Simulated assay, not measured.
Amino acid sequence: MLSDEELLRYSRQIMLPDVDIQGQETLAKCCVAIVGLGGLGSPVSMYLAAAGVGELVLVDFDQVDMSNLQRQIVHCTESIGMDKVLSASKALKQLNPATQIFTVKSQLTQTELPDELQQADVIVDATDNFTTRYVLNKFCVHHKKPLVSGAAIGLSGQVTVFDTRESSSPCYHCLYPEGHEEQPMTCSESGVLASVVGMIGTVQATEVIKLLIGFGTTLVGRLLVLDAKHMEWRSLKLTKDTQCKVCGVQTS
């Protein structure tokens, strides 16, 4: 049951037929894990907290650096040197005190996955390296959890949803088979426009909300690609690899 304060806070969202009071109450009961509190994780975390998601699990191992502030908007100048999970937690609690924040300072490895991930209804991949992405993908396939994946560099970005609760959904390994991936460029090497990570991050947040409430058509089976220089979006069809070592049908 929403309080009068909550009805006022979320009033513009509740007005939407796809959300309504029932959808808002659903958000309040949900938990989302955001892995990476950088350029993508910043807008994702802020919009999910503002939208009224009940619990957020923030996972990151890094500290705030001056060079982060151009695009990692959940952090501020006084947070320089602070753990990103703590900096983000402070900002999100100020944004919406009703959202419970759990922090995990960790660089995810195959053998060390925080228990908090088990509680998440949706997991957001806002990282910038293949190693962590593969770990998250295997976890989500094994536990049948939706994975909202985003990436951005320079003036381009991409976002998709992997949800192996749907039999036709590919997984991250289908798109980028392990061992065949190219070494990703980093923002420190190639640069990135601040607003580009914001655009990709807000799409990720929107997909999370749709998954939690259960409305609309998600990006499962589609890769949305952004060319910000010419402001063009392309939607590419993704297919499941039946021989995928992670989500494919394995025969003995």
Rank of each mutant, 00 (worst) to 15 (best):
residue 138 K to T: 10
residue 186 T to K: 05
residue 171 C to G: 02
residue 77 T to R: 14
residue 46 M to A: 04
residue 149 S to W: 11
residue 98 A to Q: 14
residue 214 G to W: 07
residue 16 L to E: 02
residue 201 G to K: 04
residue 205 A to W: 08
residue 141 V to P: 03
residue 171 C to Y: 07
residue 106 S to H: 08
residue 74 V to Q: 07
residue 132 T to M: 08
residue 31 C to L: 09
residue 151 A to H: 04
residue 96 N to P: 11
residue 188 S to C: 01
residue 180 H to A: 05
residue 64 V to G: 01
residue 60 D to I: 08
residue 208 V to P: 09
residue 105 K to T: 04
residue 249 V to D: 12
residue 32 V to G: 09
residue 29 K to H: 10
residue 56 L to R: 01
residue 108 L to R: 06
residue 216 G to N: 07
residue 218 T to I: 07
residue 199 M to Y: 08
residue 88 A to V: 13
residue 156 S to V: 02
residue 117 L to K: 02
residue 207 E to H: 06
residue 113 L to R: 15
residue 182 E to C: 05
residue 199 M to W: 07
residue 129 N to K: 08
residue 81 G to T: 08
residue 8 L to R: 07
residue 15 M to G: 00
residue 13 Q to P: 02
residue 143 H to P: 00
residue 90 K to E: 15
residue 222 R to T: 15
residue 221 G to P: 12
residue 3 S to D: 03
residue 12 R to Q: 11
residue 90 K to Y: 14
residue 224 L to K: 15
residue 16 L to P: 00
residue 103 T to M: 10
residue 230 H to M: 13
residue 82 M to E: 15
residue 88 A to Y: 03
residue 79 S to K: 09
residue 252 S to K: 14
residue 105 K to L: 00
residue 108 L to I: 12
residue 60 D to R: 13
residue 39 G to S: 14
residue 13 Q to D: 00
residue 43 P to D: 05
residue 61 F to N: 00
residue 78 E to H: 13
residue 70 Q to L: 11
residue 32 V to R: 05
residue 114 P to Y: 04
residue 112 E to V: 15
residue 210 K to H: 07
residue 237 K to I: 13
residue 42 S to I: 13
residue 174 C to E: 11
residue 250 Q to S: 14
residue 192 V to L: 11
residue 175 L to E: 01
residue 149 S to A: 12
